[in-house]
Simulated scan of single mutants.
Amino acid sequence: MPNTLRLHGLSVPISPDDVSDIIWSALQDGSYEAKEARWAVKAVRPNDRILELGSGIGVITSLLAGVEGAHVMAFEANPHTVRLAEIVIKANNRNNVALEHGLLTAGPSRDFTFYVREDLWMSSLLKHQGPYIDTIQVKSSNIDEFITSFNVDLVVMDIEGAELDLLTHARLPGVERVFLEFHDHLYGLEGVRQVTSAMADKGFAYDPRGSSGPCVLFSRNTDPRTYEPEDIHAAA
């Protein structure tokens, strides 16, 4: 039977054989996606329709789905990771999640090579990111068409550098908020500038009330929001 860990208030019933030693250690000591777990959930509002890109093993997915009235549509390109995410989502009774194996990208559907790495969180579309153990072919779907079809309010993404191309070229029609993790070690501060500029052109502003380090919230809504005391302490 798989081990049942407790992580960020969730049950994570997976085995050390399912992940690398580095990821297993992070799961055990509670550091796995700890900052993302704190800040991504703060981007969610009750009854949000959430699109998550890069679900990983389903930890952030399950946390997002725990917000009242939320519905999560999640995509993950690695089929092994999808299987783990399905286990975690089911273990936490998140019946408001639709999880798919696939990719959403800007522009027409096309085939991509996805590079699978031992540390699942390093798997990506980028060959130069480091040594990989396998490749798979994944056909993309158009993100803007998906957003329009499902009336998405919030996009959450952790896609290992692919956010640079996606957010530069996607229109994100009707989306109110975008939460992402920057991977500046892959594209430098110039890439961060490109994403920030592209988001501003779409009407989004960097929202410091929901951002911390590389975990960044962009918002269209300019209504005033107050800081919670613990957020001020965490950002200090």
Rank of each mutant, 00 (worst) to 15 (best):
R117A: 11
I143F: 01
S109D: 14
N96A: 08
A98F: 07
A91T: 11
G102V: 06
R117S: 12
N92E: 12
L125F: 15
G130R: 05
R94Q: 14
L103P: 02
R94P: 09
Q129F: 08
L126Y: 14
M122R: 15
T113Y: 04
Q137F: 01
T113L: 10
F114H: 01
D111N: 11
L103S: 01
S140H: 01
S141Q: 13
Q129G: 10
G107W: 01
D134P: 07
I133P: 02
Q129S: 15
S123A: 15
L104Y: 05
N142W: 01
L126N: 12
A106E: 00
L99H: 05
N142C: 11
P131W: 04
L120V: 07
Y132I: 06
A98Y: 06
S109N: 10
L103H: 01
D111Y: 03
P108W: 00
P108F: 02
S109K: 10
L126A: 14
P108C: 05
S123K: 12
V116P: 13
Y132E: 06
K90S: 13
F114E: 00
D134M: 05
K139F: 04
L104W: 07
G102E: 08
L99M: 12
K139P: 00
F114L: 01
I89W: 09
N142Q: 04
L125T: 07
S109F: 02
S123T: 12
P131R: 00
S123N: 12
H101M: 09
